[in-house]
Design a protein around this nucleic acid. Structure first.
Lengths: 233, 233
DNA sequence: TCATGTCAACTAACATGTTAGTTGAGGGGG
DNA sequence: CCCCCTCAACTAACATGTTAGTTGACATGA
C-alpha cells in the first residue's frame, strides 16, 4: 500500500511567504521526491499535525496541487497522490514540446551575444560534470540550459507554464537512473541546439529541440514496466 | 473608478457541482463580460451576500481566478480584477500559438474522415452565419472549429490548457466589435486551415494557423488606444 | 508646504466549528 | 453463497470566529 511519509515533510520554516504557499511547497516537494508515494491517501489532519498549522492552509495547498494534477481529490471522500500515468506523461511531453520548440525558435531569431555566452559557459560546465560523473549537478545544469533559452523570449510566464504542464513528466524523470553514455548524448544534443541558435537558424533549432525532447520521452517509457506499482493499472 | 456590478452576478443556482466551483464560474463570467471591470476592487463580504454563501467558497474561487491571472490578490490588503495589459495579451498569443499550431500539425497528420466531415459542416455553418450577420453565433462556431481540431489530438488537457493560458486574450476578444469584412476573411482563413488538414499537409496547416492567429492579435492591438481606461497605465 | 509618525479601520489569512456526501463493514433476505 | 440494504464512521466541503498585515487619514513638527 502506498504510504505518505509525513516525517519527511520539510519544515515549512524553510520557506517564506504565505503559510498556504509554504505548505504547498512542502507537500509538492514530498510528492516529487516520492516521499509521498503515488496512490497514497493524503489526510489533512495528520498533515496539519505534522506541519503545526490549521486545515485552511493545507486545504489551499491541496487545491493548488490538484490544479498541478499531482493529487486527485474525490469530493466528500478522500485525496490521493496521483498515480503515474504514461498517458499523462505523453500529454506533458506534447505540451512541453509545443512550448519549448516555439521558445527555441524564437531564441534562434532573437539571440544576443550574452545568451550565446551564457549557453556556451553552461555547455562547458556540462562537459565537466559528465567527466566527473556528477549527475546530480548535471541535472541542474541541464535545467538551467533550457531555462536560459526560455528566458530569452521575454515571456515571463513561459518557464512557469512549461513547469505547470510538465509535472507528471518531471516526477517521472526523478526515477530515471543516470546512464553514463546517455549523458554524453544529451550534451551532444544540447550542443546541436546551441549551434542552431548561434547560426540563427530557427528551423534547425526546432528540429534539434524536438529530437532532444523526444529522446527524453523514449527513455521514460520503460518506467511503466520497470515500476508498474507506481502506475495506473 | 472601475466598479464591480454585484447585482449582475449570475445566480450560482445556474451551475451545479461544488459550491466553490459554481462561485468560480459566476465570478469568472462576470469578469469576462466586464460586469466586473478591470481594476475594480473585489470584496469578499459583498460577494458572499450577493451569492448567499460563506467566505470559504468565495476565497477558493478567488484563488483559482488568481491562477487564471484574472484577479490580483495583494496579501493582507485587497483583491482587484486584473487590468488589461497588452504585454499579457501578447504572452497569451505566444503560448496559444505554440500550442494550437502544434495541435493543427498533429491533426493534419492524424486526421480522420469524421474530423473532415465535422470541420466541413462547421465551415458551411460559418458561411451561413456570415451571410446572416449573426456574429454572436459565428463566434461560437469559430470556437467550435478550433475545438474540433484540438479534439483530434487525443490530449485531454489541450483545450483546457489553451483556455488557461489565453484568459487575458479571451477577455480582450469580447471587446472587439464585429467587422463584417473581417468575418469573411476569418472564414477564408479557416478554410485554408481545413484544406491543409484535408491534404494531410502539416507544414501548410502550421502556416495557415499561424497566420490566422497573428491576424487576431493584430486586431486586438488597437484596443489599448481605444480603451486606455481598461489597460495598465 | 511637506515629511513623518501614529493609529484606527479594513481586509486577507488563518483557525476552528459544523454539515453533508461517501464508503465500506456488517446484517438480513433471496 | 451472493446481493442488497442499513448505518456508523470518516472526510471534504462549507460556515464562522480570530489574527495579523496593510493602508490611508490625520496629526505633529520641521
Amino acid at each position: 500500500m502506498p504510504k505518505a511519509n509525513l516525517e519527511n515533510l520539510k519544515s515549512i520554516r524553510e520557506f517564506n511567504g504565505l503559510l498556504s504557499d509554504r505548505v504547498y511547497e512542502a507537500i509538492k516537494a514530498a510528492i516529487l521526491s516520492f516521499d509521498f508515494e503515488p496512490g497514497a491517501v493524503l489526510k489533512k489532519g495528520p498533515i496539519c499535525d505534522a506541519l503545526g498549522v490549521s486545515r485552511t492552509p493545507v486545504s489551499d495547498a491541496i487545491m493548488k496541487l490538484e490544479a498541478d494534477r499531482l493529487v486527485e481529490v474525490i469530493p466528500q471522500s478522500s485525496t490521493r497522490v496521483a498515480k503515474m500515468s504514461m498517458k499523462e506523461i505523453r500529454e506533458d511531453a506534447f505540451l512541453r514540446e509545443a512550448l519549448e520548440v516555439s521558445a527555441v525558435e524564437y531564441a534562434a531569431e532573437h539571440r544576443t551575444d550574452e545568451l550565446l555566452a551564457r549557453l556556451n559557459r553552461n555547455l562547458r560546465m556540462q562537459d565537466l560534470q559528465v567527466e566527473d560523473q556528477d549527475y546530480e549537478e548535471l541535472f541542474k545544469t541541464d535545467q538551467e540550459f533550457h531555462r536560459l533559452i526560455m528566458g530569452c523570449c521575454n515571456i515571463d510566464r513561459l518557464h512557469a507554464t512549461i513547469g505547470f504542464v510538465s509535472n507528471h513528466m518531471d516526477r517521472a524523470r526523478k526515477l530515471m537512473l543516470p546512464i553514463p553514455g546517455r549523458s554524453l548524448d544529451s550534451v551532444t544534443e544540447h550542443r546541436k541546439i546551441f549551434e542552431a541558435i548561434q547560426k540563427a537558424d530557427p528551423a534547425a533549432a526546432r528540429v534539434a529541440m524536438q529530437q532532444h525532447l523526444r529522446h527524453l520521452i523514449k527513455r521514460l517509457e520503460p518506467l511503466e514496466k520497470q515500476r508498474p506499482d507506481l502506475f495506473i493499472p
